[in-house]
């Protein structure tokens, strides 16, 4: 039955060992850029950002909308630093380092802006599942209560209908907020836009920086700007493919596994009792790393490390949500 032995085609064969290890073509070397940050000289390759330079010096710069795998959108403005000669502060996440720059990362002026940015966010957004931002608020002495009493949550869907331009002023002493009911329109993840700081990360992840599905966009304008599907339809009527890559990059917990949301509601969510284990997804041959978050021998959430060459932190619906089969235990 078996045909006689013949040399199999090359693609099916461990090939002879090449003389040299195959490597990508050498990139043109990037010249060094020398600058001074907080009085310390630092040298970074051309194209590096001020944030990179700060990282090299071990400086702790707060960030919210910055993500290592994404083009900086520089919208949160919490990472601003003072650049000598510049009229305004500059966002360190996106400002490219240039030779001769003199940068201060912790001047009074810098601290004042950071404090205000945090204060403005804390006064308008629910940061209860954003411990990193809460910690920064404390560190910089943000006093959100200065801006008035929190506005009550707007009725379901009301914010989604707001039009640009004309609007009504709230009662004196009331500080506008983005508070609104949680959107739960599918069994996999929820969207709690009361917690949205509008960092654009989910839009980037859904868009051309990862998933390329474009189910969501920023809609509206000004304080009424919001993340929205077309005409604010439920996700189930949108282009969403439930890859959950938006959840993976959300810095505030506005986007959350339904499993986590439900457990938090029930008071059973306990990160201290959770163990994270890296493994490889079983659903196709791409080889995506899954980080399984397990509590009480149950998978409660799935993420992927942002620094993996294959996933860059992204997964598909099967990898992120297809774990139920191992939970359905007798």
């Amino acid at each position: 039955m078996a045909e006689p032995f013949r040399e199999p085609p090359m693609w099916f064969h461990a090939p002879p060992r090449p003389t040299r290890v195959p490597m990508p073509p050498a990139e043109a070397s990037r010249p060094a850029v020398d600058l001074v940050v907080d009085g310390k000289a630092v040298s970074v390759p051309a194209g590096a950002t001020l944030l990179d330079a700060c990282a090299k010096l071990g400086l702790d710069i707060p960030t919210i909308c910055q993500h290592p795998n994404m083009t900086p959108v520089n919208v949160c403005r919490v990472c601003v630093v003072e650049l000598e000669g510049a009229r305004t502060l500059v966002p360190s996440c996106s400002r490219v380092a240039e030779s001769g720059m003199k940068v201060s990362t912790n001047s009074d002026r810098v601290r004042a802006s950071r404090r205000m940015v945090l204060e403005l966010l804390a006064s308008s957004v629910d940061l209860s599942t954003a411990p990193d931002i809460q910690r920064r608020c404390a560190e910089y002495g943000a006093r959100p209560e200065r801006h008035g009493s929190p506005e009550p949550a707007s009725p379901e869907g009301e914010r989604d209908q707001r039009v640009p331009g004309h609007h009504h002023l709230p009662e004196p002493g009331i500080a506008r907020r983005v508070a609104q009911p949680v959107k739960i329109d599918n069994d996999l993840y929820v969207r709690d836009y009361s917690k949205c700081v509008l960092c654009y990360k989910c839009v980037q992840a859904c868009g051309d920086e990862a998933q390329n599905t474009f189910a969501i966009s920023v809609a509206g304008r000004g304080f009424d700007a919001r993340i929205s599907t077309e005409n604010a339809v439920p996700l189930t009527d949108s282009a969403c493919v439930y890859c959950g890559n938006c959840i993976g990059v959300c810095p505030t917990g506005a986007l959350m596994f339904k499993s986590e949301h439900d457990m938090r509601q029930a008071g059973t969510w306990d990160e201290s009792a959770q163990k994270q284990t890296d493994t490889i997804c079983g659903y196709c041959g791409v080889g995506c790393t899954l980080t399984l978050h397990v509590q009480d021998n149950t998978i409660v959430k799935v993420t992927s490390p942002a620094d993996r060459e294959i996933t860059h932190g992204n997964l598909c619906i099967k990898g992120r949500f297809g774990y139920q089969s191992v939970q359905n235990k007798a």
Partner: peptide, 8 residues
């Protein structure tokens, strides 16, 4: 394996 989760 996939029938176990509620894919929308």
């Amino acid at each position: 394996q996939t029938e176990g989760f509620a894919s929308p």
